[in-house]
Simulated assay, not measured.
Amino acid sequence: MRTLARRETMRFISVWQQTLLAPLITAGLFLTVFALAFGRDRAPVMGVPYLAFLAPGILMMTVIQNAFANTSSSIIIAKVQGNIVDTLMPPLSPFETLAGYLAGASARALAVAVVIAAGIGLAIGHWPAHPVLLMIYVFMGALLLGGLGIAAAIYANKFDQMAAITNFIVTPLSFLSGTFYSTDVLPPLFQTLTHWNPVFYLIDGARFGMIGASDAPIGQGLMVIAAFTLIVLGLCWNWLRTGYRMKP
């Protein structure tokens, strides 16, 4: 398990320009575009300037996308290339295999979070109000989206199937979760739909960790995220146990 975790961690460290520098640049571009689009005319949101409100949403969105990519790319590439057997043959239990993949996703998520949080602090002068809570949400986001990446890669047998899951499930969940706006401005129906989106609670928790304000109660958010995470990881564990769509 330690070897698998090390392999998954070294996969993203060896290409840090793509996995750490690129997310920082992307987050910077988002902030730059919104700063140029709204300038100083945008009213404060939740009592803070709009860029300070926007920054934690971008941070968490980038974190979960990288956690998903770390696990999903590792498994789908191995399946397509036919070397997934190298992971299946060692005497690893389903739990150990799951933990090994999630360790890599968590390491990448935490590294991306630290890099972007530092960039946000230097760029707009806003540092986390509750850094420990922010890291807790980052870790939980890594577990949830890392697990979703494992489930998606197990189910998919081709790159285009994996791309469809990313484009039609993961990306909408990320963008329609209050990343760029407060849910208070939404009509009641869309507010209800948003509160069924677990990514909303990740974004909301990260925002509380950064600015000390949120749309939903923090305790409620933690319970919802924990419930969805247990469901997703339970599904992954069962599929790894049975070899579903993994064994040649």
Rank of each mutant, 00 (worst) to 15 (best):
A226I: 08
G234T: 07
L240Y: 00
I225R: 01
L230E: 05
T242I: 12
V232Q: 01
G243F: 09
Y244F: 14
I225G: 01
M210P: 01
L233S: 01
A227C: 12
M223C: 09
Q220H: 14
I218A: 10
A206G: 10
G234L: 06
T242C: 01
R245S: 08
K247E: 13
R207E: 02
G205D: 00
R241F: 03
G209M: 12
R245L: 04
I211H: 01
F208C: 03
P217T: 10
A206N: 00
G243L: 01
L240Q: 02
L240V: 04
D215F: 12
G209I: 01
I211C: 07
L233F: 09
L233W: 01
L235S: 10
L233C: 06
A227D: 03
R241H: 15
Q220Y: 15
I218F: 11
P217E: 08
T229I: 04
M246Q: 14
G234V: 07
L222P: 11
V232I: 15
S214N: 11
W239C: 03
Y244D: 00
P248C: 07
G212D: 05
W239I: 08
S214H: 13
A206E: 02
Y244N: 04
L230M: 14
P248A: 07
I231P: 13
G234P: 08
R241Y: 11
I225M: 00
L233Q: 05
C236A: 15
M223G: 06
M223N: 06
A226G: 11
M210D: 06
W239Y: 12
T242D: 03
V224F: 11
L233G: 05
G205V: 08
N238A: 14
F208T: 00
K247T: 10
K247I: 14
F208G: 02
F208R: 01
M210F: 15
V224S: 12
A226R: 06
I211P: 02
C236L: 06
R207Y: 13
L240H: 03
G205W: 03
Q220R: 15
P217Y: 15
Y244V: 02
I218V: 13
L230A: 14
L222Y: 06
V232M: 14
